[in-house]
Design a protein around this nucleic acid. Structure first.
Lengths: 265, 265
DNA sequence: CTTAGCGATTATGTATACATGGAAAGAAGC
DNA sequence: GCTTCTTTCCATGTATACATAATCGCTAAG
């Protein structure tokens, strides 16, 4: 009966790979995961109504869990309530994506500042430093061909540790929420640069910011830590800009189909 | 069948006074409002499990709407999912309340900055200015006995307009969410000072900040606008501090029963 | 007296039946 | 041919029945 509150970023950290066949999952959670997957993979057309009965057929669970999943996904921001009832797949404008990233940067900045001002435990510092070492390793190992999935994984981990340093449940929750939008999460747009010759440079800069913010926190320089995290998030802005010009790059981003593309000359 | 997404701050602006007897409400929405009221009025003990069946009895609707309401209230942050299933009334530590306020200030700061940087419409500026005029009026009219409920109303309106100026659905949503916590909303803690002789001074300072931020936005001074809003929220910190020392003042805040009080010497 | 185990109660998760309101499709009138 | 009205169908909102897991209390043993 466990509900297990399946917030997307949280469990990516905890359980490495339990697919939908896990028996400990309730139907509701199963439906929620499956539906999210469906939305993110673009199998449901953006803006289109998500019919409960159709989902019942497609997911193999009854209406009740489907309904629950719909409600949760709406709160998560992937669906939108239709005034007359039911839900539709949400579409995001370029502006909204931009703003989501800015919000994330702002909140991560707040987290970093709080961490710096209040001071953090030695173990947290150690964990973060270890994580950065690991990223350094990844980048040193393959100067020409970087293991991007490993980078993304470690990057997510670092951001997770950093948020944890603020020791604020409320803030963590808010950040979870904004990062639930697939393209707003810390490393969602990293793969965009995978084909770029500047990939190395960009990752180096990002990693330098990682080092800087950790150092700032360690030295209790709150304002600096905050500023760095804000700017750090803005790397995603650049990636977004790039993705919006090349459809091929865009395809590397999960849920990119939800973004309403602006007509470009 | 309309779902009407009853986010608390939104409808306080739109519909002035439609009680639970409105026929346009679905059972779910009715249950949601009623449950929120129950939680905020402290009729459900903090930390206690919220039994579905009990709520069915108490609210006079069937389990399905109650269940929906529970899920939404959990997302809203007033309830907490119990790992083994079901929900309990969430309790907030002093620290969490403090942080919620800080988050609100940060996001309102972001809104102000965006508004300033992007520029706002003349009508928005006018509306905001009118609102501030109205507040000035309230404060001029009763130097000894201020109409606090009117002040609270106008204050909420100003914050609402300000958030609207950023023209960001995503940001507005996030702010709605954090302000859903009753004591984190812009004017939740204002009544705390109602018995204080410094009330006038505090409101004056707050109102001055209102004027300053509007001026900053008008002059497109983004950084300044942001800083002001952040500091503006911190007035609530002081009010919180005061409320935590006097239970009598605390009682003026709705939902104050959810705050776990720290033992004080 | 404390603790461990077992059973009964109860709570939640799930499925499904029913009613109502909206949306789409078809027919009729202009 | 286009518009509008009507009708049908279907989607959602709601209620409720059922199954299973958890919690609470009781009993018995150490």
């Amino acid at each position: 009966m466990s509900i297990a509150s399946p917030e997307s970023p949280k469990d990516t950290m905890i359980k490495t790979a339990d697919k939908g066949s896990d028996r400990s999952m309730t139907q509701t959670v199963r439906a929620q995961f499956a539906l999210r997957e469906l939305v993110l993979r673009g199998e449901l057309n953006p803006g289109e109504r998500v019919s409960e009965l159709q989902m019942v057929e497609r997911l193999g669970v009854s209406r009740t869990p489907v309904r629950m999943a719909l409600v949760r996904l709406e709160e998560e921001g992937l669906l939108e309530a239709i005034p007359s009832g039911g839900f539709s797949v949400k579409t995001f404008s370029e502006k909204e994506v931009f703003e989501s990233i800015e919000i994330r940067g702002t909140l991560e900045g707040l987290a970093a500042r709080l961490a710096a001002e209040r001071g953090v435990s030695r173990t947290d510092l150690r964990n973060a430093a270890d994580c950065l070492d690991a990223i350094d390793d990844v980048m040193r190992r393959g100067t020409t061909e970087i293991d991007l999935s490993r980078y993304v994984e470690l990057n997510a981990k670092f951001h997770h540790i950093l948020i944890g340093m603020a020791e604020s449940q409320t803030l963590a929750r808010q950040l979870e929420r904004v990062s639930a939008l697939p393209f707003a999460s810390p490393s969602a747009l990293v793969p965009v640069q995978s084909r770029s010759p500047e990939l190395n440079q960009i990752l180096s800069i990002a990693q330098d910011q990682h080092h800087c913010v950790l150092s700032a926190i360690e030295r209790r320089e709150g304002t600096r830590a905050e500023a760095i995290m804000r700017e750090h998030a803005r790397i995603a802005h650049r990636n977004l800009e790039r993705a919006l010009t090349n459809q091929r790059d865009m395809d590397l981003v999960p849920g990119s189909g939800l973004i309403k593309r602006r007509i470009r000359a």
